[in-house]
């Protein structure tokens, strides 16, 4: 246990609080970017816009998982067993969306 007593203990409470608030501002900023982009691109519809929004969502998710859920400070192995299996969902999404597009073509 000695050497692994969470990394966070090397940081002072003030540091952690600072980091939490920093993350809050980052998340808020990203959300504001979402909104600004939304209005800026209101009449523009393309796959790229959607991809951009999804990427912003993924970045937000990263900050929530890494800082709020403390994943950044846990062992890499824990991150591995949680995040790697989740990748299977991407396969589900990929294949089912192809199927959705195909169903559209059939109609």
């Amino acid at each position: 246990m000695e050497h692994t007593e969470h990394l966070e203990h090397t940081e002072s409470p003030a540091d952690i609080k600072k980091q939490i608030w920093r993350t809050f501002w980052i998340l808020s900023f990203l959300t504001v970017i979402d909104i600004v982009l939304y209005f800026a691109l209101l009449s523009y519809h393309s796959m790229w816009k959607n991809t951009l929004f999804i990427l912003l969502g993924v970045v937000k998710a990263f900050y929530i998982v890494a800082v709020f859920m403390h994943m950044k400070f846990e062992r890499k192995a824990l991150a591995g067993i949680i995040i790697l299996p989740f990748m299977l969902v991407l396969i589900l999404i990929w294949l089912v969306l192809i199927e959705g597009g195909y169903t559209f073509d059939l109609r």
Partner: peptide
């Protein structure tokens, strides 16, 4: 275990599923 997650469609070859998915 890994492969079992990417083969579910072999139960559905005959459903009119996208033939591309059939090959995957």
């Amino acid at each position: 275990a890994f492969l079992s997650f990417i083969v579910w469609g072999h139960h559905m070859f005959m459903t009119g599923m996208n033939p591309f998915l059939g090959s995957v």
